[in-house]
């Protein structure tokens, strides 16, 4: 399979000890859930895919995105977006500047970038929020901005690291629907790490258990 995100006999080792060993393929527009108790290697998996594991960790095997081998590429050159449990909006930047941080540098001109940010805000029902302080947003608004910031960077795959576990039940269902819908609309392969069975059920895709 050339399209999507694939992990081909991937092993992560630490000082010779195997932490994680798996094979999986995530097709565009689908969500694969990885479940497991804490310590089963979920965050190691994300680190391997993101390219943030450094020595003494060793990653063996191949990680491919749309056919291209990602081995050895730094995180910023992988084209993979990530959403964590916390929104991690940069607290020193305004909402608009956070979104602009994700815009590709190829989009030139202050006005054009400003327009792209405003359009993105409108898309998530937050028109006029560009100058706001991220600290003043509600939990749901923060997640929407974080998601939009990631999507603006035009990733070719999306990783979700327990993205909804800090939310209460109501908001959780709502945000889940939004994230999955937008990822599908862009036909992104999504790899979600979670310990919440409801997340996995809502993802409506393959479920992999670690540990």
């Amino acid at each position: 399979m050339d399209e999507g995100l694939s992990l081909d006999r991937v092993q992560v080792r630490l000082n010779g000890r195997v932490l994680l060993s798996l094979d999986l393929a995530v097709a565009p527009g689908t969500v694969t859930s990885v479940m497991g108790p804490s310590g089963s290697g979920k965050s190691t998996l994300l680190g391997a895919v993101m390219g943030t594991l450094s020595a003494p960790f060793e990653v063996l095997g191949r990680i491919r995105l749309d056919g291209a081998d990602l081995s050895g590429r730094p995180p910023e050159a992988r084209g993979i977006g990530i959403l964590f449990q916390d929104d991690l909006l940069f607290p020193h930047l305004s909402v608009g500047a956070n979104l602009a941080f994700g815009l590709p540098p190829g989009l030139r001109g202050r006005a054009a970038r400003r327009a792209a940010v405003d359009a993105a805000l409108s898309e998530i029902g937050m028109a006029g929020f560009a100058a706001r302080d991220p600290g003043s947003l509600s939990g749901g608004q923060k997640i929407r901005v974080a998601l939009m910031r990631t999507l603006l960077s035009e990733p070719r795959a999306l990783l979700l690291d327990e993205p909804f576990s800090s939310l209460d039940a109501d908001l959780r269902a709502q945000m889940r629907t939004m994230v999955f819908a937008r990822a599908r609309a862009r036909t992104l392969p999504v790899l979600m790490v979670t310990h919440d069975a409801e997340d996995a059920a809502a993802a409506d895709g393959p479920v992999l258990r670690l540990g």
């Binding site: 993101m50 730094p74 910023e76 990530i82």
Partner: peptide, 28 residues
């Protein structure tokens, strides 16, 4: 929180941009 760095990298920022635009301003 190093995840800020991961997020910035995932948005396409190289290590220098992470340092100058994210880490140093946050650690002002």
């Amino acid at each position: 929180d190093r995840r800020y760095g991961t997020v910035a990298s995932a948005l396409g920022a190289g290590p220098d941009r992470v340092l100058w635009s994210v880490r140093l301003p946050m650690l002002l």
